[in-house]
Design a binder for these strands. Structure first.
Lengths: 237, 237
DNA sequence: CAGTGGTCTAGACCACGTA
DNA sequence: ACGTGGTCTAGACCACTGT
């Protein structure tokens, strides 16, 4: 019934209402109780529920209209951060069934370019992976990944046939820095075939190098058909 | 100096303190007046200043410690910083001569979409600008900008014939939040002509909405030929 | 025009951390 | 120990808006 110590009253009320909304019990568009009703329910003053509702507005969970009441807002459109999205999460956020397929998996030594990229002096072993993420029936993202077997030797024993390397690495290896390069490209013949778009079609390409304090872990290039994806980032000066 | 409708009391206090912090007059680390002092200064109740200070905490501008007071926070660390320099700086970093041209400048009321975008209830006046940034002889970036004349009335008196709106706004208006949407697009006929690329050529599009605590300031769409530009971003978990 | 949210007041008690 | 911020109350007036 009661959680440990749900902190302050308005925090408890906030958590309560938030849970109702996020769980879907209060669906999008539904009106939530008036301030004066909530006062009675929680036996508190109007300032207290007002504070809670103001926070819900700021969080984008509800909107309020005079005389009409407070209403649950439609699921957040694009409020995601650029943080580190796992492709699966992105797809499911779109409400589409997620599909994953491993295209190729090869263990090999790094080329000269890759050696420089990973900050090595001499070529080291890499795991090179290519996989395709699908949303519904459509290809959603082509993933081309290099995993440092120096940093993550355990990757050599993973097949990645079912689990995407991004998901595996995320829970396997802690990281401290992710560098992104974001660009627009024209689909090459190979990319066009895999993503089922015309050759030359615009694509959004995200190249990410992930490191921890000691060394480079993995480098991935994600290619999305332009119409299927955009990145969203918020920050403060 | 003050806007016409001073809005509500706590909004005025918020704007006042925010301006002091963002302008640097209250430096990072400095203690700001205690709640009870602010009550006296603004002749209001403690709830009112408390509400204001809570918003400043949420915005990350101050932090509060019991018994000690409230302090201006150090400028945001690079935790989630997407480094987007001014276009001029980008071009000069490439070692190419920078060129700027104003294509059009129009004062008009916001459309319905724009009204929603800026968070207004009724259409307000905007300054709509289009300009072109060049690197060497080549067009480098098409800028399509809307400036809120509510937030920045002084913009109405600027010609922007010589100085780009981005540069002007940066030194004119303090901001606290920038939201980016990054996507790849195919050049439309109009964009292709302006950027001197083939129709359908891939472009990188960055849409940025800049706000302070009270209101939206400006929205800009920057379109770059895909081969000329990429974004770089570093993140920490 | 009635009822909602928006705002504000003048108190109060308490937890906490710093001096 | 003391003064700060954290929280809460029980009122109040007002602006807006949907009916």
């Amino acid at each position: 019934m009661k959680r440990k110590t749900p902190a302050s009253l308005h925090q408890r009320i906030l958590a309560d209402i938030q849970e109702r909304i996020l769980s879907g019990r209060w669906a999008a568009g539904a009106r939530i109780p008036f301030e004066r009703e909530l006062m009675a329910q929680y036996r508190c003053s109007r300032m207290t529920v007002s504070k809670v509702l103001a926070q819900l507005v700021q969080a984008g969970l509800i909107e309020r209209r005079r005389r009409a009441g407070s209403f649950v807002r439609a699921p957040r459109t694009q409020s995601a951060l650029l943080h580190i999205p796992e492709v699966r999460v992105e797809v499911e956020a779109l409400g589409k069934p997620y599909h994953y397929a491993l295209l190729s998996r090869r263990r090999r030594a790094a080329t000269a370019k890759e050696t420089a990229l990973f900050g090595w002096r001499t070529p080291q072993p890499l795991l090179a992976l290519r996989c395709l993420h699908g949303a519904g029936r459509r290809p959603f993202c082509l993933e081309e990944r290099l995993v440092s077997l120096v940093a993550v030797p355990a990757a050599a024993d993973e097949s990645f046939a079912q689990l995407s390397p991004g998901a595996w690495l995320l829970q396997q290896v802690p990281w401290t820095l992710a560098e992104h390069r974001i660009s627009a490209t024209a689909a090459t013949a190979r990319v066009a075939r895999l993503l089922a778009v015309p050759v030359g079609a615009p694509c959004l390409e995200v190249a990410r190098m992930t490191r921890n304090l000691e060394q480079a872990i993995t480098r991935v290039r994600l290619t999305y058909p332009a119409d299927l994806h955009q990145l969203v980032a918020s920050f403060q000066p």
